[in-house]
Amino acid sequence: MIELLTSSLRLSAPLIFAAMGGLLCERAGVATICLEGVLLISAFTAASVDLLTLNPIASVVAGMFAGSIFMGLHAFLTQKAKTDHIISGVAINILAAGLPPLLSQAWFGSSTNTPSVPTAARLSAAWMIAISLVLPLGIHYLIYRTRFGLRIRSAGDGPEALQTAGVSVEKVRTLALLLGGALTSLGGSYLSIGHSSQFLRDMTAGGGFIALAAVIFGKWRPIPVLFASLFFGFTEALPMILQGISWKGISIPVQWIQTLPYLLTIGILVTTIGSARPPRAIGSNQN
């Protein structure tokens, strides 16, 4: 039981970081299916820098920087070049899927994974989990109590009003994306050098998309999104427990168990979406 709880928390942490990053972007009116790519690229960057510097803090910062650059690209594509948000997101995901194997092959001689970082250079998972649990409070404060938060909410719900009030919607959205990218990257860095000790090509396994589902499930509000992420973390932890169990000598194939988080995510989306209302101007481009 305790095991289930702790592994839920471990698996929730990257989801919470990504969901909080995604929440900021989506509240500002930008659809972010590129969370997955940002997770991936930050995981790789953090692992590579950690191998080089053996300094986990510097590596996290580097990961955040890389993630922000990718979100910055999303900002440029959607806000400046007025590209469709989904198309831009897909392009970024593809880029983030291609870059790590290429660089990993060139730097470390293997396109599927990086070498392991020494234990001493790993990020404290406990600390990261603690941060992930407190972060939503900070996001709540940012969104509902600050000027920037007010502008983010306006950019997502009434961009015309914000623009006529003399504030650049593009700027607000870009800032939200950069910040969101940095937060999401905390999750990516945690995956590679906190939760694990190396970067693996498939290590995010759709976590970015599940985080996005958590944002929807939590109705774009920080605290409910936290609980949604915890729930999805729990569904990811379940397979590990179920794997050992067999019934009358028949054990459930691991492949079936692996589908569980995705099945539950879809199930929840399908049953709850009717009551969820996204930010009004999400995915729309200001002209």
């Binding site: 594509l77 070049a81 590209t83 469709d84 198309i87 831009s88 897909v90 392009a91 970024i92 593809i94 880029l95 899927a97 291609g98 870059l99 194997p101 290429l102 990993s104 092959q105 060139a106 001689g109 396109s111």
Partner: peptide
């Protein structure tokens, strides 16, 4: 040392440029 995933990067560049 080039892995075949380079195609993904070129793909992304093409999508970005065209869109």
């Amino acid at each position: 040392n080039i892995s075949k995933e380079v195609s993904l990067i070129l793909q992304a560049i093409l999508i970005i440029l065209v869109s």
